[in-house]
Simulated assay, not measured.
Amino acid sequence: MTDPSPLSGRQPRAVRSALAVLEEVVAAGPGVTAKEISAALKLPQATTYRLLNLLVGEEYLVRLPDLRGFALGRRAARLALPVVTQPPAAARAVVEHLRGLVRWGVHLASFRGGTLTLVDPDPDHPPTESAVLARYPHASALGRLLLADQADWRALARDLRPLTAHTVTGTTELGDRLALVRDADLARQCGELTADKGCLAVPIRDPATGALVAGLALCGPAARVAEPNDELVRLLREHAERLVPLLA
């Protein structure tokens, strides 16, 4: 089958040049100027400025506040796979303690780099794979914590695919659900990721900056998750609070 829109003669060179500019910003570090990039790559200054403007527009680069240089942007962080680091022993002990109090699965996720990654999944209640959670954040409680924290959640939830008959895929309804997450500091999904399971999740934030760094989730039968679950939510919040100084 032929490519319906093959690259023209100049396009491969332009793609290579744009990637070279990204690599140069990584190598030189934040604050590298257009003139320095142009000299290092031996590119015409007009070409360099055009590529920089394109990469800034697509959020792979950002202009520094003093307008003298450039740094990697939000989308550039998504080009690399997140490094999964095991939480410290004290944090794992807190998670294990919660597992001993409930019959549901207990999972700890990291949001470092703006990506959802499971760092302490419950071995007795295997969760959905991190790659699926990261790709379809609209369908999971942990993913909704991340989306609710974004200025524009649509930039992370690009594929609102229905994973079950209960998955919320409408942008208006999902936006309303995320507003509730922000108001309550609690995310809930009932049978949206897998039909028979649901989850409750609460955020773990850096106390100094308020930045979202992790999330703690309880996963169990979808019908049970739909209930108020005041006692389970209380336990979830208490243990998330204990994790703050260990993970922030």
Rank of each mutant, 00 (worst) to 15 (best):
V32E: 02
S8T: 13
R13V: 13
K35Y: 09
V15F: 13
I37F: 06
G29R: 02
S17H: 15
R13F: 12
Q11V: 10
P44K: 07
S8V: 10
P6I: 01
L7I: 08
S38K: 01
E36V: 09
L19N: 08
E24A: 12
A28T: 00
V21Y: 02
P44R: 05
S8W: 06
V15C: 06
A28N: 01
A27V: 08
A20M: 08
P12H: 10
G9V: 15
R16T: 11
S8C: 11
L41R: 11
V21S: 08
L7T: 10
A40T: 04
Q45A: 11
A27I: 00
P12M: 09
V32R: 00
A27L: 09
K42W: 08
G31S: 00
A20S: 14
P12F: 09
T33D: 07
V15W: 10
A39H: 00
P6E: 02
E36G: 10
E36S: 15
T33P: 01
L43I: 01
A18E: 09
L19R: 14
P44S: 05
S38N: 05
R13S: 14
V25E: 02
S8P: 13
L7F: 14
G31F: 02
P44H: 00
L19C: 15
A28Q: 13
A27C: 00
A20G: 14
L43N: 02
L41W: 07
L43P: 05
I37K: 07
V26H: 08
K35F: 07
L22F: 09
S8L: 14
V32T: 10
R16W: 12
K35S: 14
A27F: 05
L22H: 10
P44G: 07
S38Y: 03
E24L: 11
A28H: 06
L19A: 13
A40S: 15
A34G: 12
A14D: 10
L43M: 15
A39Y: 07
K42N: 15
Q45F: 09
E24R: 12
V25P: 02
L43E: 00
A28F: 03
V25I: 05
L19F: 15
P12N: 05
L22M: 15
V15K: 06
E23F: 06
K42G: 13
Q11I: 13
G29F: 07
R13C: 01
A34V: 10
E23P: 07
P12D: 08
